[in-house]
Design a protein around this nucleic acid. Structure first.
Lengths: 129, 129
DNA sequence: CATACTCTTGCAACGCGTTGCAATAAGCCG
DNA sequence: CGGCTTATTGCAACGCGTTGCAAGAGTATG
């Protein structure tokens, strides 16, 4: 792995980011610092960073990429299709599900890539009221 | 809702489809019948069909759209990132998960849009062996 | 320090899906 | 049947992400 200016910059920007970012957002922030930034380089670098565990990505409800920086633990995400908010699924909450799929179907869920759509408690109450 | 030739054609092609199709595949099949087919019309029509329950869509592991035709029941999908195969999650298997999220987080999972990545039993065994 | 090896970059083009807008054509009503 | 309203279409352009390829720049080596 080579230590290039572009990668240095991407890591800097990622450090200034907490939580989730889409690919496009990252490109924008990078361009704000270095207008010469190229999307292909950014996305390629993100893939490399994912391989070595610096970021993880999943897909939002619309299929767009969302990157999660330096995750303490693998965890999935919840997206409310009504209010648009999103939350992390705590490892504790996910564990039972992961276990259930492993036991019943032998399928090993990739938690880091898990993105679940639906309706959050608040929106559901607001709707049924 | 208007009954146009384009919609008629799309429904015909959907009828000749079992299981899952990506948007691009549909456009290709439609073009094979009518070369004048326009992507925007196809995707717009698919959205309409989804609203009235004829199809449902989720996103594959790469974020691309996958349409499911005339689903008997809402159900999620499992995608193996190793062999690329995909399976339906039976309502029975999904029920416990849906219930768990509702109970613990108040979150109401949209099963029809659920797409879970991971490693299938076969691939996992092949790998650990 | 110069050299070679090969990993990275930028470019240009592509693929999938979406959107705004003007033109078209369904379906309704007299 | 003919005209009217408005849903639908096609076009063109855009947004996000990917890929092939040749040029460029890290890094290790002598």
């Amino acid at each position: 792995m080579r230590w290039t200016p572009q990668r240095r910059l991407l890591l800097e920007v990622l450090d200034g980011t907490n939580g989730h970012v889409t690919g496009a957002e990252l490109v924008d922030r990078l361009r704000a610092v270095d207008p010469a930034t190229t999307p292909s380089t950014v996305y390629r670098t993100l893939r490399v960073l994912e391989e070595i565990g610096v970021v993880q990505h999943a897909h939002g409800r619309d299929g767009r990429e969302e990157f999660h920086v330096r995750p303490a633990e693998a965890h999935g995400h919840l997206h409310c299709s009504s209010c648009g908010q999103s939350w992390e699924i705590s490892p504790a909450d996910a564990a039972a599900t992961v276990q259930a799929f492993r036991d019943r179907l032998g399928f090993d869920i990739d938690l880091s890539h898990l993105s679940v759509g639906g309706t959050c408690a608040t929106c559901r109450e607001a709707r049924t009221r």
